[in-house]
Amino acid sequence: MSDPDKLPLLPPARRSFLEKAAPWLFIAPSLLLLLAIGLYPMIYTVYNSLQNFVMGMGPPVFNGGTNYITAITSQNFQNSVLRTLVLLVITLPVELVLGMMIALALDSQHSPFLRRLLQICLVIPIAITPAVIGLLTQLMFNEQLGVINYLLGRIGISPVDWLGSPTSAFATVVCVQIWEWTPFVALVLSAALSTVPPEVDEAALLETERWWPRFSAIRLPFMLPGITAALVFQTAFTMKAFDMIYAIQKGGPGSATEVAIIHIERLAFRGFDIGVASAQSILMLVLSIVLARTYIRLFYREVDG
């Protein structure tokens, strides 16, 4: 994270009241807005999570931490969190490895035109509407009429019922998630790779011709902040994934692709159980904060110091 304390500052000017209030006048509008739409709702969610609150079933009643016990012991919630974590554990390493390969390919001296083209095209999966990605997935992964099975058939693989069975539906979500987010990881890693000073790289080349030691001992340490950023942000994006997965088949078949956010959305707006859904949201929030802090501890100690 960029450190605001290292920014160049204006020297203190005439110490009028207006001067002293100036920073706060600049910041106040956004601060008030974010307090109203960011902090207040969060406090409201904490409050709701402590109430027995089912929409249409009378006024909310305080019930201690019961909702949290209901949430933690709910089989469906456990499964949806587990699914989210499995999605994370499978996609993250794949995205990192593929993203690193793409970043290294962009870093090479060969084929400048192709590299330029790739740099531009990498932004497409990030910018394209996730709901549309979901629709395209439905069309392309169709068992009988989809182009994916047709292409697989050409290389002798028999048709897969991608969307029909629970396991393959989850595998489809994994594939599409990797398609959607590998370019983001690649762009972040590519930016991180460009922070390796060329003279250090060249000095290492004099030391050894072999690629791996140069990569792991010289480039990787320089890239650690970038890798941490990719992990932290990609984890946040995966934890809050909803649009694309929902558009494929609303968490189905059954609950095969029902990730945590889809589960909570369903509980709150189809099951009307605001109390327990709020408790589950808070638990997800805590989980994502814990994951982000763990990465920063593991990979990027300086930040905490």
Binding site: M1, P4, D5, L7, L9, L10, A22, P23, W24, L25, F26, I27, S30, L31, L34, I37, G38, P41, M42, T45, N48, V232, F233, A236, M239, K240, F242, I261, I264, E265, A268, I274, A277, S278, Q280, S281, I282, M284, L285, S288, A292
Partner: peptide
Amino acid sequence: GIARYSFRGRREIWFWYVTNWMLVPVVVLI
């Protein structure tokens, strides 16, 4: 304001803004 001034709470405000970007949306949605 954040770029040009030093004031108490600047760092906290800054990190809080970043946190909002990473927030799980249901926490706000409900």
